[in-house]
Nucleic acid binder design. Structure first.
Lengths: 198, 198
DNA sequence: CACGATATCGAGGACCCCTCGACATAGGAA
DNA sequence: TTCCTATGTCGAGGGGTCCTCGATATCGTG
């Protein structure tokens, strides 16, 4: 059943030129996506990296694969935050709410890294084929645990689900790409208040 | 200063074939935008209307002009609702809040007509060159009056502006294009609750 | 019915997506 | 060191979209 050479989970190291191009592509993509959003031209990315378009596709078969590689470190930081928040006490309503608010704020910031990212993330949640799916699922799971604690402590309205919170986060992040920062922050506060029990 | 033939505000009637194509293009655009969102291919629209692409551009110089024509009736209905709500009493907090909630709900539905529309509307608010600008400004103005009344009645938090409400409406509409309808509705409720004074 | 004024048409230039066969080269084996 | 091949890179090319504009067709009036 398994191929002649067992498919190593850990990829063999890239050739030196490949590693170099990989890094250049990531650097270029970071700049281009920041300027033009996640829908930006991939030919522009390759051009700015000084590689041929085929090289880009060689390293990143899809736009989402590129995005995933670009976000990897940031996503790890978000996961770490989730672990940290879940390790904290969180017994009182105040604690539980503070943890959830910190989580929502952080993930909103993450999803607002590039314009267009929020939509991609939200869309990846139930698209198993997306390279972003795993990360979304993991964020969603952490959110779920925090929502459960907050609900148990009576710190959020009982009809709100983890999936609602994830959606709300992404709509707040979308807003950050559409309106001035201070306004987006104010509206995030409004949304957070809306989460309180009535 | 004015051109030889004074530029009639009311356009002269279209030629019969032109009128026919205009209608066909609108019908096709309605279908295509509904299926694929406001970013859909205009060549597809022309194709489906059975006209050449140049004919489409002849009638609608920009995508937003097409969108504006497509939305005209709906937008009128929204304006009418605004007038009606403003004509109502609205003295008590309950009345003022109910009016604002009805307005927000209606505009959210409007902005969710096609996926991508919310972003276009929000972006048109401070882009005078957009064909959607006038309608946005008018909706914004109606919202402003309703927010003012609600605030005077103590029915919304005092730090929230009309522009915030317009932004919130559009983020709720954006959500409607990303998640199931019932979830979007639930989250609109959350946002509406967030608007209450603390 | 003829003749503008109005519209329509669609090729074409510029850009983008993505694939794939021809070509280059890093880096281990001899 | 040299050679060989797995691993990478390249970029033309097919297919798509946007938008323009000169050639062409059609409406509707005098």
């Amino acid at each position: 059943m398994s191929p002649p050479t067992a498919p190593d989970r850990r990829a063999r190291p890239l050739r030196a030129d490949a590693r170099r191009n990989y890094e250049r592509l990531l650097t270029a993509a970071e700049a281009v996506f920041r300027e033009r959003g996640t829908g930006a031209s991939l030919e522009e990315v390759a051009r700015r990296a000084g590689t041929a378009i085929g090289t880009l596709y060689g390293h990143f078969p899809t736009r989402q694969a590129l995005l995933e590689a670009l976000l990897r470190d940031r996503q790890q930081a978000v996961f770490d935050l989730g672990d940290r928040l879940l390790a904290q006490p969180g017994g009182t309503p105040e604690e539980a709410r503070a943890a959830l608010v910190e989580w929502i704020t952080a993930v909103t910031g993450h999803a607002a890294t590039y314009s267009g990212l929020a939509g991609a993330l939200l869309g990846s949640l139930d698209d198993e084929t997306s390279e972003l799916h795993a990360a979304c699922a993991r964020m969603s799971a952490a959110g779920e645990a925090l929502v459960r604690e907050a609900r148990a402590a009576g710190a959020v309205r009982p009809d709100v689900t983890a999936s609602d919170v994830f959606a709300l986060i992404n709509s707040a992040a979308w807003l950050r790409g559409q309106v001035p920062r201070d306004q987006a922050d104010r509206l995030l506060t409004v949304m957070l208040d809306g989460l309180r029990p009535r």
